[in-house]
């Protein structure tokens, strides 16, 4: 982390020392809200221990390219940089679960706007859905995560995965159906619907 922090900072500073007119404020304001998205997308591109470094390199490259960004499709632009950075560095995808499994297994946030007496049921439900998500094949899971966790549009998710939008939709819908089937097998919905 620290190694790449220094490297990224050096690269970014060198690039802009040549006088490129970049609005620092604009960059900071625009990019900061996208950090969670980048972190999540990076989890599908590299090992858990390398996620933060990959995002940091991406931020550095984005900063250096900010004066050439046309102002449209910010997320797609960032995700393209992220994916190319991962590819260029020869990063490998994580085997299967790794750190994500620990995160998913932790106590869920039950901020669904529930009344206190509903929170225990919701907590169980959220945990069950997370476990079902973890059981999905990687290509289904990535599609579901990008749309349902990160709020990407179909096109943005397809861009981030580098696949046609039709393929992304197919993976997303099948992934959700698989989760629904897994929950159905466990009788989850019967209990909730009474």
């Amino acid at each position: 982390m620290l190694r790449s922090l220094r490297l990224a900072r050096t690269l970014a500073t060198e690039s802009h020392s040549e006088g490129a007119a970049v609005s620092r404020g604009d960059f900071t304001d625009a990019i900061k809200p996208e950090i969670p998205l980048l972190l999540h997308a990076a989890r599908g591109l590299t090992s858990a221990s390398d996620v933060e470094d990959l995002v940091q390199e991406t931020l550095s490259k984005a900063y250096r390219s900010w004066d050439r960004f046309d102002g449209r499709y910010l997320r797609a632009w960032l995700l393209t940089i992220l994916r190319n950075t991962a590819i260029n560095a020869g990063r490998k995808k994580r085997p299967v679960l790794g750190a994500d499994a620990e995160t998913f297994a932790s106590e869920p946030d039950t901020s669904l706007g529930a009344k206190p007496d509903e929170m225990a049921v919701q907590s169980d439900f959220v945990a069950t859905v997370r476990r079902a998500l973890l059981e999905l094949p990687e290509h289904y899971r990535s599609a579901v995560e990008l749309v349902d966790m990160d709020g990407l549009s179909y096109q943005e998710a397809a861009d981030s995965l580098g696949i046609p939008v039709g393929t992304m939709m197919s993976r997303l819908h099948r992934g959700r159906r698989r989760i629904r089937e897994l929950l159905g097998d466990q009788g989850t919905f019967e209990g909730r619907r009474q």
Binding site: D109, S111, D148
Partner: peptide
């Protein structure tokens, strides 16, 4: 409900 449950995770990511 499934979408909502999944989206909750995004808010407590690292």
């Amino acid at each position: 409900q499934i979408k909502t449950a999944i989206s909750i995770h995004a808010r407590d990511l690292d």
